[in-house]
């Protein structure tokens, strides 16, 4: 029962590390230059087929699942698809989109918008999307957003919530100096991470513990008291399973995070667009969380869960 997450975790991180060890650009190993093919065809006669689409994903299970869903929907639409999963953090896979080693990745509007424009102030779904569209690098585009949102969130255990009487991030202010905050290493340097907590809520935690081995480790550390406040995603099944309390975010430090396909314009054609928009129309936070329980808690194969979902659209 415990073994699957352990193995998955070990594999994921091993792959991430392997990728990081391979030189300047972890994504440029065997790219097979699909974009060059694509550009050549569309530059010539503009035939409809558009060639192969390489679907990438970030290095956490939900993004892998979403990538599998995109891949399944595209393959049903007759598009040739390959997947390149578990690439790394946004900083890593954006470089992959740029150099053509991937063509499509499931993104989150808020994270992308903040990455593209660290000074972003808007937080609603529409405004965040508009901001991301505006700052998107040339050659990339966003298709329709879904209702499914996977936000960054700060969670505490039920005991901590009761003991300190906290229900929102703002309530942490008098206690932060005694609390240890835990999360992935990138949370420390992101504008809406540790810095944002200080600027927006005035929170100075006693320590930030950087946990690089996936949310499973962060959840364990929170459950066992090595960290008091943890940064995990709002769709993480562990929240439900451990009755963690998701702290409210009254100042909207964490912007809207609608799931959206980020795609290289070279591979966009009506068939691709229709297939991905149909996925976006069907996705909700609820069915995404339900699928996450199947993948993470029950250990089902993400590709199989994705296939069932796409068949049901």
């Amino acid at each position: 029962m415990r073994r699957t997450p352990v193995l998955a975790l070990a594999l994921t991180t091993a792959m991430t590390l392997a990728a990081c060890g391979s030189g300047d650009d972890p994504l440029a190993t065997d790219a097979g230059s699909p974009t060059e093919d694509g550009t050549a065809t569309s530059g010539g006669t503009g035939e409809g087929e558009g060639g192969e689409v390489i679907v990438g994903s970030a290095n956490f299970p939900e993004n892998v699942l979403l990538a599998e869903i995109y891949a399944a929907a595209l393959s049903d639409a007759g598009v040739e698809v390959t997947t390149r999963l578990n690439i790394g953090s946004r900083e890593a896979y954006m470089a992959g989109l740029d150099d053509g080693s991937i063509d499509l990745i499931p993104e989150y509007t808020g994270g992308l918008a903040t990455y593209l424009n660290p000074e972003i102030t808007v937080t609603s779904s529409e405004e965040v999307l508009a901001d991301a569209q505006e700052n998107l690098p040339e050659g990339l585009q966003l298709l329709e957003i879904s209702d499914a949102e996977d936000k960054d969130s700060l969670v505490v255990t039920q005991e901590t919530a009761d003991e300190l009487g906290v229900a929102s991030i703002a309530d942490l202010e008098p206690h932060a100096g005694d609390l240890v905050l835990g999360g992935p290493p990138e949370f420390e340097s992101r504008p809406n991470g540790v810095d944002g907590l200080q600027e927006v809520y005035g929170l100075e935690f006693a320590e930030f513990r950087s946990l690089a081995a996936g949310s499973n480790l962060t959840v364990q550390a929170l459950r066992n008291g090595q960290v008091d406040v943890a940064n995990i995603f709002s769709t993480d099944p562990a929240i439900e399973e451990n009755s963690f309390v998701v702290l409210e975010d009254p100042e909207s430090l964490f912007a809207a995070q609608n799931v959206v396909p980020l795609i290289s314009s070279d591979v966009v054609n009506p068939a691709v667009e229709d297939a991905l928009n149909a996925v976006s129309a069907a996705l909700t936070t609820e069915n995404l969380t339900a699928m996450m329980v199947e993948v993470v808690s029950e250990g089902q194969d993400p590709a199989a869960v994705a296939r069932t979902f796409v068949d049901g659209i």
Binding site: T13, C20, G88, S89, E91, A92, A95, G182, P184, P185, E186, E188, S189, R190, R209, S210, L211, A212, A213, L217, A221, Q226
Partner: peptide, 20 residues
Amino acid sequence: AIVGLGGLGRFLIDGQASRQ
């Protein structure tokens, strides 16, 4: 550093996470 301990590995792990 992967499990949150200190040491020079911090620079490798944190640097990779933020592409520095």
